[in-house]
Design a protein around this nucleic acid. Structure first.
Lengths: 202, 202
DNA sequence: CTCGTTAATGACCCATAAGTCAGCAATTAT
DNA sequence: ATAATTGCTGACTTATGGGTCATTAACGAG
C-alpha cells in the first residue's frame, strides 16, 4: 500500500554518509558540526551512522581518506606518461592542477587538517605519506627529468619542491579567510612558476 | 596570621588571563580549550574570568588583538627610518623578520584564525585591516622605493606582495602539522627572496 | 505466505562544559 | 576599630550533543 519508510542500502550508506559529512565539515568545521546534522544530510538516523562509524572521530578520518585518495596518484600517472617537455609540462598540466587546488575539496581538507590535525597524529601521518610526500616527489621528478634532458640546470630549487606549493598554500588559506578581499590566485601561482622556471632554465 | 587566600589585582588580571588563554589556545585550539583550564592557568577562578570577559568568544578576540598589536606597526616604523638600500633591507631586516614568524606567537594566531576565523567575521576584518593589509603595504613600499631609487625595475611582482609571504605561510602550516618532518624553513624563505630579488633587480 | 535475519529508527542517557550568582573576604574609607 | 565597598570564589544550573539500545520493519529464504 504505502511506500516503505526506509530502504535497506547497506552498500551505499558509508559513501553517502562520508559525503554528507564532508559537506557539513566544509561548512562548519569539525568541532561545530553535529553528528545529527550529518545524519540528517545523509537522510539517515543518527543511530545508523553509529552503526557504520564507531565515533565522530572515525567519521572524520574516513572523510579525509575518502577525498584524498586518487588525486595525487592520478597526477603521478600523468607525469610518467606525458610526452611534453619539462617546461611545457610545468606551464601546462602542472599549472592547471595547482590552480585548481584552492577551489577544490582538497582545500577544504587542508583547512580541516590545519584545524584538527594536531589532535589526530595518525591522520597526519597518513596524509603525509599518501599526499604530501607523493606530491613533493612528483615535483622533484619533473625537475630532475628536466635536468637530465638538459632543459634545466641544477640549483637550490632541486631540494625545495615546496617552493612550487607555497603560493598554493597561501591561496588556500587566503580564500578560506578573506574570500571577500580579492586576490588573483591564478596569477599568483603563474607568477611563481614563472620565477622558478626563469631560475632553473639552462 | 595566615596569608590571605587571594589578592585583589584588578589591574593585572585581564593581561594575565589573556596570556594564559593564549597558551591554552596554542596547545589545544579554541574549541577544545576549557574556560576553567584558562582560569586555572591564570591562577583565578572561572567566575572571575567571566567578570572580565563576557563570553569565551570575547576572550578569544581579546587574545588575538593582544598578540597582534604592535608587531606590524613596529616593522612599518623600521622601514621608514632605515638607511639601508632596498636590496640590503630585504636581505637583512625583512628576511630576519619573515624567518621569525613561523616560530613566533603570530604563527599560533594564524593557526587559530584559520580554524576559527570563518565563524568570527568581525575578527577577520579586524585582523585584515590591522595586520594583513599593513603587512602587504610595507612590502609594496619597499619594492616601490627600490624602483624610485633605480635599484629595481617595475614588474608583475609589484602587485603581488603576497609572493614574499607565500613561503612564510607554508612554513607556518608545515610546522604546525609536520613538526617532525624536517623542513628548513629559513632556507625556503631565503631562496624565495633570492628568486624575487633576481627577478626585480634592475 | 511465513519466518528469521538484520538494517534502520528515534527516544533516551549522561558526561561535559559554558555561564551564573549568593556569599565571602581583601581592601579602602571613615 | 568598624563599616562600606568590591574583587573574588566555587558550587550550582542548564543546554548541548556524543553515544546507546530496545524496538521496528524491510527484505530474502524456504
Amino acid at each position: 500500500m504505502s511506500k516503505p519508510r526506509y530502504q535497506r542500502r547497506k552498500q551505499d550508506r558509508p559513501q553517502e554518509i562520508t559525503e554528507a559529512a564532508f559537506d557539513a565539515f566544509a561548512e562548519k568545521g569539525y568541532a561545530s558540526t553535529r553528528v545529527e546534522e550529518v545524519a540528517k544530510r545523509a537522510g539517515v538516523s543518527k543511530g545508523l551512522l553509529y552503526l557504520y562509524f564507531k565515533t565522530k572521530e572515525e567519521l572524520f578520518k574516513a572523510v579525509v581518506r575518502n577525498v584524498v585518495v586518487r588525486r595525487v596518484d592520478a597526477l603521478t600517472e600523468i607525469v610518467e606518461t606525458t610526452e611534453l617537455s619539462s617546461e611545457a609540462f610545468i606551464r601546462g598540466p602542472a599549472s592547471t592542477f595547482l590552480k585548481e587546488v584552492p577551489g577544490s575539496p582538497v582545500a577544504v581538507i587542508i583547512r580541516l587538517l590545519i584545524s584538527e590535525g594536531p589532535r589526530h597524529p595518525d591522520l597526519l601521518e597518513y596524509y603525509y605519506n599518501n599526499v604530501v610526500s607523493k606530491g613533493l616527489a612528483v615535483i622533484k621528478r619533473i625537475v630532475s627529468r628536466g635536468i637530465e634532458r638538459g632543459e634545466f640546470r641544477p640549483s637550490v630549487v632541486d631540494d625545495l619542491p615546496h617552493l612550487f606549493l607555497a603560493p598554493v598554500m597561501l591561496s588556500v588559506v587566503w580564500r578560506s579567510l578573506f574570500a571577500k578581499k580579492a586576490l588573483d590566485t591564478d596569477k599568483l601561482i603563474d607568477t611563481q612558476l614563472e620565477l622558478l622556471l626563469t631560475h632553473i632554465k639552462a
